[in-house]
């Protein structure tokens, strides 16, 4: 019988910790490319934009297992790039916790991009024009106007990506496996417990944990969204005045 802390067994705590760790890594790595891609789709017109958009949103509609399989084919130990990365740098993603992070990134990327795109679209383009006439180049304009004004939306996207990472199952189990203490996140732990007869209590505890963490992330997202709306209303009022 595993040792209990706060009513949770060690494997459950390990699964919770791993889930949070994977979620934070996922969000940390996603932030820059997610913001860049969202801004690109919101503000720029270029050939192949719809193709890029379809590629970005593909994991949202693709069965997660298929996404996991594709990751395995590409980044598995014998995959197209995985073999090369292992031979050159000794990096291995499949069946490691970084693999779980990678699977989460691929699954959460569309959510992050979508949030950023909406947030950037909500930033009044006139503000960016004003910034340019005040001598700000594209980078300064982005850092001092676009980014602060879309920050609540970007943070809401990060919260959604974190929540998506917590709930990620199909791609993770396919690409990273279900190794206790290594790649077994909360959903995988629930799945494993379901296979054990008479472990309903453990399943319920894990489910409650998942719900609590997910609700926290969604609550954060909602708070930040309402801040964005309030700020935009203020901007609107000051221009109407």
């Amino acid at each position: 019988m595993a040792q209990e802390h706060f009513g949770l067994t060690s494997p459950e705590i390990s699964a919770l910790w791993l889930s949070v760790k994977v979620g934070l890594w996922c969000v940390g790595i996603l932030l820059v490319p997610g913001v860049a891609c969202g801004w690109l789709l919101a503000r720029k017109q270029f050939p192949g934009k719809s193709v890029l958009e379809a590629m970005v949103y593909l994991p949202m509609v693709l069965p997660p297992v298929v996404t996991g399989c594709l990751l395995l084919f590409l980044l598995g130990r014998n995959g197209v790039f995985g073999k090369m990365l292992f031979e050159l740098f000794g990096w291995q993603f499949a069946f490691t916790w970084m693999g779980a992070v990678l699977a989460s990134i691929v699954m959460a990327f569309p959510l992050m991009v979508r949030s950023v795109k909406v947030a950037v679209e909500m930033v009044d383009g006139n503000m960016e024009e004003a910034s340019r006439t005040l001598g700000a180049g594209p980078l300064r304009c982005f850092l001092t106007v676009t980014l602060p004004l879309s920050a609540p939306g970007i943070l809401a996207g990060a919260a959604l990506a974190f929540a998506r990472s917590l709930g990620e199952f199909g791609a993770t189990i396919t690409f990273a496996g279900n190794i206790r203490g290594e790649t077994q996140t909360l959903p995988l732990a629930v799945f494993s417990q379901l296979q054990v007869p008479g472990s309903e209590n453990a399943v319920l505890r894990l489910a409650a944990l998942s719900i609590a963490v997910s609700l926290g992330a969604i609550a954060l997202s909602r708070i930040l969204e309402s801040r964005l709306k309030r700020r935009n209303q203020n901007a609107q009022e000051s221009d109407d005045a």
Partner: peptide, 16 residues
């Protein structure tokens, strides 16, 4: 941004 031309727009466009 390199023209050194200042503009006061019809709308104020102050950074909120």
């Amino acid at each position: 941004h390199k023209r050194r031309i200042g503009v006061v727009f019809q709308e104020n466009r102050l950074f909120p």
